[in-house]
Computed example of a mutant assay.
Amino acid sequence: MANVVAMFVQYLSAKTGLATGQDLPTLCRRHLPRPVAGFLWVQAELVVMATDLAEFVGAAIALNLLFGVPLFPAGLATAVISFAILALQRLGYRPFELATTFLLGVIGFGFLYQIFAVGGPSVSGVGSGLAPRLAGTESLTLAVGIIGATVMPHVIYLHSAVTAQRKRPVDDFAKRAALRGLRIDCFAGLGLAGLINLTMICIAAVLFHGVGGGFDGSLQGAHESLGRLVGGAAALAFAVALLASGLSSSGVGTFAGQVVMQGFIRRRIPLFLRRGLTMAPALVILGTGLSPDNALVVSQVVLSFGIPFALFPLVLFTRRRDLMGDLANRPLTTWTGVAVCLVLSGLNLYLLSQLLFG
């Protein structure tokens, strides 16, 4: 369900950039009251920091699993690698996009290999598992984290910017053709991401319930269980996929941070300085010995809390014909966006109330 929502939201974001030639943060600054835009900027920066924390910690854990490097030195090594990936930006967006696509391919291969290596879940089991059900605050926390990790509010800002920077179509026919291409891109890319997400959950389910258990829910536990129950190749594929995921997403998060700052307050700082600032919380967690797995879950919950703050303005702007022209939302699209906002906000508030008063 989160993946379907992600397809819908990212499609709206891409359409915004195509129709207006502006990114979502810029539209917020120009068309919303200054206090509102200022609040949205602050929460967007927190979302970007949560994104960097998750991906940075994940990549550091992957280096630890692959080479036995302690977590803090692994974090420093991750910083060096991520800086190298960011250097591709100097060559333009295309090399960065190709590098990210390659890393996504590595992720997909790694997790598809694992699902076959563990024997695969039953079709009926997967079907019954797709029915959402909650069992207490811990279950709700994980569900909200899955939503945050899948919909990714920082990418809502970034996607509109990437689309806006492309050459705009000159006539209605070209606009419609470009819009169809964006729709295909969103559905294909996020469809692959959804398959990978589903595969990860199925692997955990099979390890825990099917072929011997012993899985404690941590990334290190997943790696150990794969090696013990399936074989070293499956464990290696898991660690490589985890590393590729962290490195690709960390670069995306840094670019999203630049878009957020430039759009909301018309300020830019060097990419390397921004990367250094946003990686600091992750290094603190790795250096002080706090649980990296708990930090990962909390960071994804923070992302979920940021989704409505990006989605409400997005729906507001995409319904306006004076901004979007012929690409303005139809009423059904607008009301679908409003419904998604309300459902996600309700889940977030319910989780918050359970954590505070439950």
Score class of each variant (00 low, 15 high):
residue 116 F to N: 13
residue 155 V to A: 04
residue 42 V to H: 13
residue 36 V to L: 12
residue 63 L to M: 10
residue 266 R to C: 15
residue 39 F to P: 00
residue 83 F to H: 05
residue 110 G to W: 07
residue 118 V to S: 03
residue 73 P to W: 07
residue 165 Q to D: 14
residue 227 G to K: 08
residue 325 G to Y: 11
residue 157 Y to H: 14
residue 32 L to D: 05
residue 33 P to E: 05
residue 224 E to Y: 07
residue 44 A to C: 02
residue 353 S to Y: 15
residue 314 L to C: 03
residue 243 L to K: 07
residue 245 S to A: 14
residue 323 L to P: 00
residue 304 S to I: 04
residue 266 R to H: 15
residue 31 H to E: 06
residue 242 L to P: 07
residue 184 I to M: 12
residue 239 A to L: 12
residue 99 A to D: 14
residue 194 G to W: 03
residue 339 A to Y: 11
residue 344 L to D: 00
residue 296 L to M: 01
residue 120 G to H: 06
residue 351 L to T: 05
residue 338 V to I: 10
residue 199 T to L: 12
residue 240 V to C: 01
residue 205 A to G: 11
residue 144 V to I: 15
residue 93 Y to Q: 04
residue 322 D to W: 01
residue 131 A to L: 13
residue 268 R to A: 04
residue 155 V to Q: 03
residue 60 A to Q: 09
residue 197 N to F: 09
residue 192 L to F: 11
residue 345 S to N: 04
residue 272 F to H: 07
residue 93 Y to D: 13
residue 15 K to A: 15
residue 34 R to A: 15
residue 86 L to M: 12
residue 295 A to G: 06
residue 88 L to H: 02
residue 32 L to Q: 06
residue 335 W to E: 00
residue 145 G to K: 04
residue 49 M to L: 10
residue 294 N to K: 01
residue 151 V to M: 05
residue 84 A to S: 12
residue 126 V to K: 00
residue 285 I to H: 02
residue 340 V to H: 03
residue 7 M to I: 05
residue 187 F to R: 07
residue 302 V to Y: 08
residue 79 A to E: 01
residue 160 S to F: 01
residue 162 V to A: 11
residue 31 H to D: 05
residue 271 L to P: 08
residue 93 Y to L: 09
residue 283 L to A: 10
residue 146 I to E: 14
residue 122 S to Q: 09
residue 134 L to G: 05
residue 77 A to R: 03
residue 235 A to P: 13
residue 140 L to H: 13
residue 5 V to P: 11
residue 184 I to Y: 10
residue 278 T to Q: 09
residue 79 A to W: 01
residue 299 S to K: 13
residue 252 V to I: 10
residue 159 H to I: 01
residue 217 G to K: 02
residue 326 D to R: 15
residue 36 V to I: 14
residue 76 L to G: 04
residue 134 L to K: 00
residue 12 L to T: 05
residue 252 V to G: 06
residue 227 G to M: 06
residue 212 G to T: 04
residue 265 I to G: 03
residue 41 W to S: 13
residue 233 A to Y: 02
residue 28 C to S: 11
residue 222 A to R: 15
residue 240 V to A: 04
residue 193 A to G: 12
residue 76 L to Q: 00
residue 173 F to T: 07
